[in-house]
Write a protein that binds this DNA or RNA. Structure first.
Lengths: 129, 129
DNA sequence: AATAGATTTAGAATCATTCTAAATTTACGG
DNA sequence: CCGTAAATTTAGAATGATTCTAAATCTATT
């Protein structure tokens, strides 16, 4: 665990949202001004392999990183492009049946219009993971 | 509906698996040798906007296209990299609750080891969509 | 302090995708 | 039919994200 890798991990872990590699790079530079983009990519990949962080595919363009390992999905608002975490309850049980017993991980992206954009209140969205 | 667009749609529709844009381009060229990559991309986007086909994000690298509109997920085998469709049952109901009533579409990618690679039989995988 | 191995760096290279501008096709009104 | 406008196609350049490369630096062990 070099200092660069620690900073990359820390940036992803302390994020309140899901950063792209470029965003991680910008934030890491505030702490280690000399850090290079390649190092950020290397360490994001290494941390993903070591299961310290998880990569999620962006709706368009670049991938994003998530430090939560609780299985959960992402709600993408088609209007404001916000991304919220959510936590399906019945679903993982069904996945266990469907896959015949085991699965490594899943990535779930749901496109919807979020309560704010719909103008309603905070409906049944579960707590962030 | 130009002949190029019809060919692109046909390639995606007749696919038994999920092709990348490049693969669609290669196959379209067999029918219309002069077709250009830009036309393939244009038409894939147009068809997606018109809800004739759906884009799914590749596990790595390029996006892939799917002509099924029944909501379903994709099972990615981490060993042989096969992609199978599957059809969750309880899950869409839960999504309706979680999103507060409506969602446009979802994309679900599950990483697992497929029955063939596990050496077992054809366990509980549901029929392709 | 010497060595080997891993990591970092800067920048070049690659790959998928988008953009651009010119050429072609299509649809419609005269 | 014929002309015109709008849409589509084309080839290739441009872009953006990511990966690669090779040299420099760091780390750990002696």
């Amino acid at each position: 665990m070099t200092k660069q890798k620690a900073v990359v991990l820390d940036v992803v872990r302390s994020a309140k949202c899901h950063y792209t590699a470029e965003e991680v790079y910008e934030l890491a530079k505030l702490i280690l001004p000399g850090i290079s983009r390649a190092t950020v990519y290397n360490n994001l990949h290494a941390l993903e392999r070591e299961e310290m962080i998880r990569r999620i595919r962006g709706e368009d363009s670049s991938d994003r990183y998530d430090s939560s390992f609780l299985p959960h999905g992402h709600l993408y608002c088609t209007e404001c492009h916000s991304i919220k975490d959510f936590n399906p309850r019945t679903f993982p049980d069904e996945l266990i049946q469907l896959t015949g017993g085991t699965f490594d991980s899943y990535e779930l992206r749901v496109r919807y219009v979020c309560p704010d954009c719909r103008g309603g209140g905070n409906e049944a969205i579960s707590d962030p993971v």
